[in-house]
């Protein structure tokens, strides 16, 4: 078994036996450890509370030397996630130049959860959401809740 698969299997075991709160992990296909389905609860205290967000985590063949890719499959109105079918997320830990093999998938998942609680508008990919988040927080929260109800059931 390639060393990348060994590492992924270990991390998968860690996440499934002792899952972080509000995160559920399963394999898309049992025979392939590289693609993970994630279901993330909208964190309490955020406009996403009550929603269940599906994410797809893809681990490259040269993991852990290249960062995993993570996308929201559920639409989410968030400054750091594109509001489209790709749901591409901008998160520092996953940038290729910042990625280190000592980062774990678990820390990627908790960082994602944290991003829902605290968006980073200065590093936004969805600029209109970022504008609202900065200038009209109430309006932003309202819209985010509406979209959560609409998409993230």
């Amino acid at each position: 078994m390639a060393s990348s698969q060994k590492r992924i299997s270990k991390e998968l075991a860690e996440v499934t036996t002792n899952p972080p709160e509000g995160i559920h992990v399963s394999l898309v296909d049992e025979s392939n450890v590289h693609n993970w389905n994630i279901v993330m609860d909208g964190p309490e205290g955020s406009p996403y509370a009550g929603g269940k967000f599906k994410l797809l985590l893809v681990l490259p063949n040269d993991y852990p030397f290249k960062p995993p890719k993570i996308n929201f499959k559920t639409r989410i109105w968030h400054p750091n996630v594109t509001f489209d079918e790709h749901g591409s997320m901008c998160i520092g830990i996953l940038k290729p130049e910042a990625w280190k093999p000592s980062s774990k998938i678990l820390s990627v998942l908790t960082a994602t959860q944290q991003l829902l609680v605290e968006p980073v508008p200065d590093d936004a990919v969805e600029t209109s959401a970022a504008e609202k988040f900065k200038n009209n927080r109430a309006q932003f929260n309202k819209e985010a809740q509406e979209y959560t109800k609409k998409y993230a059931k």
Partner: peptide, 9 residues
């Protein structure tokens, strides 16, 4: 260590 040794590539 963080900027020069540990990042891949």
């Amino acid at each position: 260590r963080k900027n020069w040794l540990e990042p891949v590539d």
